[in-house]
């Protein structure tokens, strides 16, 4: 069951990458990166149990924190001009 859950998480990570590549706006891509990071935390925790080495959980905790900081760090630049352009350009033709 552990291996099944690991495979399911890998599938979800692939789906998140697909959304990150096609995602019409910049925000879709940031959302996909955020989701990918959360799933990485779960994947590291599961892999620690699959390999019988629960020390991996320390890495998972650190990764959860890094993931949050990376998303908030990117959004700190959201007042800049470059952020505004793509959203408005994409708006009319993309749903």
């Amino acid at each position: 069951m552990l291996i099944g859950a690991t495979l399911a998480i890998l599938v979800v990570m692939i789906l998140a990458i697909i959304r990150g590549i096609i995602g019409p706006t910049l925000y879709d891509r940031i959302l996909a990166v955020n989701m990918f990071g959360t799933k990485t935390v779960l994947l590291i925790a599961l892999l620690g149990f699959v390999m019988g080495r629960p020390e991996f959980l320390d890495i998972a905790i650190v990764y959860a924190l890094i993931n949050f900081i990376s998303v908030v760090g990117v959004l700190r630049y959201s007042d800049s001009f470059a952020f505004k352009q793509p959203a408005e350009e994409n708006q009319p033709e993309e749903p």
Partner: peptide, 11 residues
């Protein structure tokens, strides 16, 4: 934070 940035930039 993501939703707020998106709506303030006019998405």
């Amino acid at each position: 934070a993501l939703a707020k940035a998106a709506i303030h930039n006019g998405l």
